[in-house]
Design a protein around this nucleic acid. Structure first.
Lengths: 119, 119
DNA sequence: CGCACCTGTCAAAGCATGCTGACACATGTC
DNA sequence: GACATGTGTCAGCATGCTTTGACAGGTGCG
């Protein structure tokens, strides 16, 4: 738990897309290979491919290239049993390890309370 | 729990951005008003404004326009104490209420549970 | 009045993402 | 060989998101 900032960001970015949510849903019912998945979800293979590798980069799914009995190469994907507890505090904690625009001179942002105005 | 599909999608899309994650982190330490928040996070007001209303649309933050003692109008924002349990099953369950491309195999849709459209 | 602070909006530019169609490769079967 | 299946990649366009700068309004103070 308490995942890395960049990791959590990738997870959110990956899940923040209806197609990718649907892919997770489809794969949660069992592993499947790309071409059939594309048929089930009615989307083009190149598109599915892009979504899958985005989900894989976020660590939400895992793919393995296998050989079927008739010799064809099939890439099976399955969901990783992830479990994230998303709360404001979890996000706040993850932000500290965010390697993004991070103006390096800004690590100490003054936890000064604003109660002095209108409180 | 077991949030609505579109709602969860908006939450993910909202959280899938480093600036917005940082906004959540900043607001989790206490409420704040827009101009000061912009100064703390070092971003322009119009940009912050857009991000805030996206977070608000996702139900992650709430804003209220108040009057300070010196008569100035200040819009204070604070985080909503959200708590999402994110698992493959949770996503799979939420997908069923996704009003998006609507895979015609699963068009139960309808009966949208009245949300006032904060206009 | 001019300046400080606050609020909000808009158009336009820049950049990332989504998406398609065409290509490459491999294998097994008729 | 022609056709089916499977894999992957690429360029290019369309769409949406991000970002900025300028503008509108408001109040209080010297």
């Amino acid at each position: 738990m308490t995942p890395d900032g960049d990791e959590l960001l990738k997870v959110f970015a990956a899940l923040g897309n209806p197609h990718r949510m649907r892919i997770i849903a489809a794969l949660s019912e069992g592993r499947n290979y790309v071409s059939k998945l594309a048929r089930d979800l009615q989307m083009s293979r190149p598109l599915l491919h892009m979504h899958l590798q985005k989900l894989e980069a976020a660590g939400l799914v895992a793919g393995s290239l296998e050989l079927s009995e008739d010799g064809k190469a099939m890439k099976y994907f399955e969901v990783t049993p992830f479990a994230y507890e998303i709360t404001p505090e979890a996000v706040a904690h993850a932000v500290r390890t965010l390697t993004d625009g991070v103006t390096e001179a800004d690590a100490k942002a003054d936890t000064k309370s604003v109660e002095e105005v209108t409180k």
